[in-house]
């Protein structure tokens, strides 16, 4: 099989590193060669973070070339937008709706874009935008947002449910396993008519 490339984008503190690790672990468990990376840098202090997961029969580079990404998992609207040029035409974007103002927006020197979903659509990407933050809170733990996203991504990958559940259980804090599995199941179920978003400000 050729290589499938997934780009993950978010802000420091959103748990992107753990999500990358889970995704990498499931790909490996499903028998693929896999390469991944996450770029943290000064991200602990609210900077941008991004990661990649690439799997296939034989994968060399952990990095994705421009125009080569198959999927984008966006943890924060603006951060999703930032990496658009790395996606294939008609790539699939799964967004967990969240807005975290960057410094220049806090300081009123720049505006936060209010049309992220329509910008994605205008480029011909297939977008699923999920209110993961609200959903996670309803499940009782804001940290579950990323697992809901993973659940939705799992609809597009022909991997066994068991692999997902095992790897998630091995990687999250023991007390949160049940919540995470529930969140994953919710994300996996979610399908919107024509994959259109339930709430779009754009």
């Amino acid at each position: 099989m050729g290589t499938t490339s997934i780009w993950l984008a978010g802000v420091g503190g959103q748990g992107l590193v753990l999500t990358t690790r889970i995704l990498t672990g499931v790909a490996f468990r499903e028998g693929w060669d896999v390469k991944a990376t996450d770029v943290v840098g000064l991200a602990q202090r609210g900077g941008k973070v991004w990661g990649t997961v690439r799997f296939g029969t034989k994968v060399h580079s952990p990095l994705i070339s421009r125009g080569q990404g198959d999927f984008l998992l966006s943890f924060e609207d603006l951060e999703g937008l930032r990496w658009m040029e790395f996606l294939k035409p008609a790539a699939t974007i799964i967004m967990g709706r969240d807005v975290i103002f960057p410094n220049r927006v806090l300081l009123e020197k720049e505006e936060y874009p209010d049309n992220v979903v329509s910008q994605f659509r205008a480029q011909g990407f297939r977008v699923t935008a999920l209110p993961t933050k609200t959903m996670a809170k309803e499940l009782g733990n804001a940290r579950l947002a990323n697992t809901i996203l993973l659940g939705n991504l799992s609809r597009h990958l022909s991997w066994q449910l068991e692999s997902w559940e095992d790897v998630i259980s091995q990687n999250v804090p023991p007390k949160t396993i049940e919540g995470n599995l529930k969140a994953f199941a919710q994300g996996r179920k979610l399908v919107f008519p024509g994959e259109s978003p339930p709430e779009d400000r754009g």
Partner: peptide
Amino acid sequence: LTSAAEDSHVVGRTPILC
């Protein structure tokens, strides 16, 4: 020929004290 999406201006995100 690469067919990547156009590079549009996206507001930067510098680190900020927690």
